[in-house]
Design a binder for these strands. Structure first.
Length: 593
DNA sequence: GACAGCACTTAGAATACTCTGC
DNA sequence: GCAGAGTATTCTAAGTGCTGTC
């Protein structure tokens, strides 16, 4: 059997893929839909046809009996002003609306949309009363939840129809699912963390704002009646189907394919192949940056220390950001002096660096790490005569770092280290933790622990679920009850055994066997519950999904499943199986990352 | 080489759906 | 059949890194 492997995975500038024998590929099995020839000249497709994006319905005015109040008096708002008021009203329960920046940004933008008369009256946000509007939407939500089965079914059918019509495209003859086929509805901008623009008005996107991308010979999507597109272009060097510019940060937004699509799948595969190539050279790269810690050039030393952090701690590259436009977050290259503390000795360890900064999505990164002496000395040097707000690596940029990496390995960038370290950690942890004699539940606990090690490395956090305490309590109640049952069963078994000793008849013997079986079953159930409780506790603030979806080569997980007889459905849900179809197709139990 | 613009991946929160136990 | 918990899916913000222009 022959399997495909695009040459583009292994280097640039080569334009054609080839087919190579299975023996040369990692894993085995057929490529099926991954088998078509690929070009690497920037052309992403030959044919692209779609219906254009779906626009959410226009604003429906509030019923007359739902009022907005200003300074205690009802005030009828113009349609545009009312619509924006509903955005705020809907968020009244949310913490956002308690924040001054959110309130100010909202009020500023809201006033811009008001009629001159409204502007004359509505001058202070704290005199605005949105509660009736808020209640209207809460009730509406409740009513929707309380609909009959048939009515819900009808709504579902309508949604399915929209999905069917707008949710797919034809790309090079394949029907592919689109990821986000709906234009983002207007609302109030919800930036993460301390975002200076939170609360600003995200305006409604009209067809006149949207650029359509498709193939020239395809059926060009029709704009909604009475409208036209901003532009229709035929650019097959990009993968997006439609785009528009959003008004908050003035950046582009795209309609793109679903991760299950061939195009995305191939890109994903390619990403992991690059990370696998790093495995072959990582020792050399590590030796090099360790040598560079002693370089005479400040630039080289900073680069070497930063790379050490990226490699050891899986930090993100840390591109520069425009000040005042976004929340103040950093990555490795943009760390400031204030983000680290140096401890020559701490808790019995030498040369400890204490990191405390906000990373992507304003998630806090806090870690105390014992580092090599030269790293520590270098950091002391980099921090000398600097203010807390100064850049730690003032002679380094992500561009310079990536240029250097590119010289060390074709296709290598800072983010590849995260993928590599995540995947290799999963593989190693699975090897260390899996016990072939465990039950499937036990093996899954091991898998989750391995997954968790990666999530911790990558600092993937989540807020503790609101229901956590309660559900943990429920689980504990179940465990206690099970323990009680177990004790009782144990006692009954002893009694049955005594009875059998006395009577020595078949009936008594059967009773012993029955009690034994019951005891075994209860023990198993208790073990399962305990495993569940451990897993739950260990997982409460850690998000496993992000690493599973983006950093872990799925072939490692699939090979593990095959090797230990765990059904793939136990670790990948339907969406994940669709996204990783390429890997499911090709992976053997002996796959090595 | 600096910079901006662009295209794409990665991210947690919000919401929708499904399952479980009563 | 219902409520509540758990899980899947959707949403869109926030990153990375490349390319083109000056």
């Amino acid at each position: 059997m022959y399997r495909c492997l695009a040459i583009s995975l292994f280097g640039r500038g080569v334009s054609r893929s080839r087919f190579i024998p299975t023996a040369l590929c990692a894993g085995s099995g057929g490529c099926s839909r991954w088998e078509e020839e690929k070009t690497n000249d920037g052309v992403k497709w030959k044919q692209l046809e779609h219906k254009g994006p779906y626009f959410v319905p226009l604003y429906e005015p509030l019923p007359d009996d739902v009022q907005f109040y200003y300074d205690g008096k009802p005030l009828k708002l113009s349609l545009a002003t009312e619509e924006i008021a509903t955005f705020y009203a809907k968020m009244l329960d949310h913490e956002y609306t308690t924040k001054e920046i959110f309130q100010n940004n909202f009020f500023n933008d809201w006033r811009k949309e008001m009629t001159p008369q409204e502007q004359e009256i509505i001058k202070q946000l704290d005199k605005c009363d949105f509660r009736e509007i808020h209640k209207y939407f809460v009730d509406k939500n409740e009513a929707r939840k309380a609909l009959s089965k048939e009515e819900k079914q009808k709504l579902k059918e309508e949604a399915d129809k929209i999905q069917e019509e707008y949710g797919y495209c034809i790309l090079d003859g394949h029907r592919e699912k689109i990821g986000n086929f709906k234009i983002e509805p207007p609302g109030l901008f919800r930036g993460r963390g301390n975002h200076p623009k939170m609360g600003m008005l995200k305006r409604r996107i009209m067809p006149e704002d949207v650029i359509i991308n498709c193939s020239k010979d395809s059926k060009i999507p029709e704009p909604p009646v009475g409208h036209k597109w901003k532009e229709v272009r035929f650019d097959n060097t990009v993968t997006w189907l439609a785009s528009w510019t959003e008004n908050i940060q003035n950046t582009l937004k795209y309609i793109m394919l679903n991760p299950s699509s061939k195009l995305k799948g191939e890109k994903d595969w390619q990403k992991f192949e690059v990370a696998r190539r790093l495995k072959d050279v990582v020792h050399k790269i590590r030796a090099q940056y360790q040598a560079d810690w002693k370089s005479k050039e400040m630039k080289v030393r900073q680069r070497a220390v930063a790379l050490y952090f990226i490699d050891k701690l899986a930090l993100r590259a840390g591109n520069e950001k425009e000040e005042g436009e976004t929340a103040d977050t950093v990555g490795c290259c943009s760390l400031r002096v204030e983000h680290i503390k140096l401890h020559p000795e701490l808790d019995g360890q030498e040369y400890v660096v204490e990191f405390d900064f906000l990373g992507k999505d304003s998630i806090r990164y806090y870690n105390k790490v014992s580092v090599e002496k030269p790293v520590f000395k270098n950091l002391q040097h980099f921090m000398k005569n600097k203010d807390p707000g100064d850049d730690l690596f003032d002679h380094l940029s992500t561009t310079a770092l990536n240029k250097h990496l590119q010289k060390l390995m074709d296709g290598l960038t800072a983010k590849v280290f995260r993928t590599y370290n995540a995947s290799i950690t999963l593989q190693e942890q699975l090897k260390a933790l899996t016990n072939p004699d465990d039950s499937v539940a036990g093996k899954l606990l091991s898998y989750n622990r391995a997954n968790r090690a990666v999530a911790i490395l990558c600092n993937h956090q989540r807020s503790t679920p609101k229901t956590f305490e309660k559900s943990m309590q429920n689980l504990q109640t179940k465990i206690d009850a099970k323990k009680e049952q177990l004790e009782k069963a144990q006692q009954e078994l002893e009694e049955a055994e005594d009875e059998f000793k006395d009577k020595k008849n078949a009936k008594a013997e059967a009773n012993v066997q029955k009690k034994k079986k019951l005891l075994e079953r209860l023990k198993e159930q208790l073990a399962k519950l305990s495993v569940q409780a451990t897993d739950k506790e260990e997982n409460k603030q850690i998000a496993l999904g992000t690493s599973k979806l983006n950093y872990l080569d799925p072939r490692i997980s699939i090979a593990w499943c095959k090797k230990f007889g765990v059904p793939i459905e136990k670790i990948f849900n339907k969406t994940q199986r669709e996204k990783f179809a390429w890997a499911i197709d090709m992976t053997d139990e002996d796959f090595e990352f």
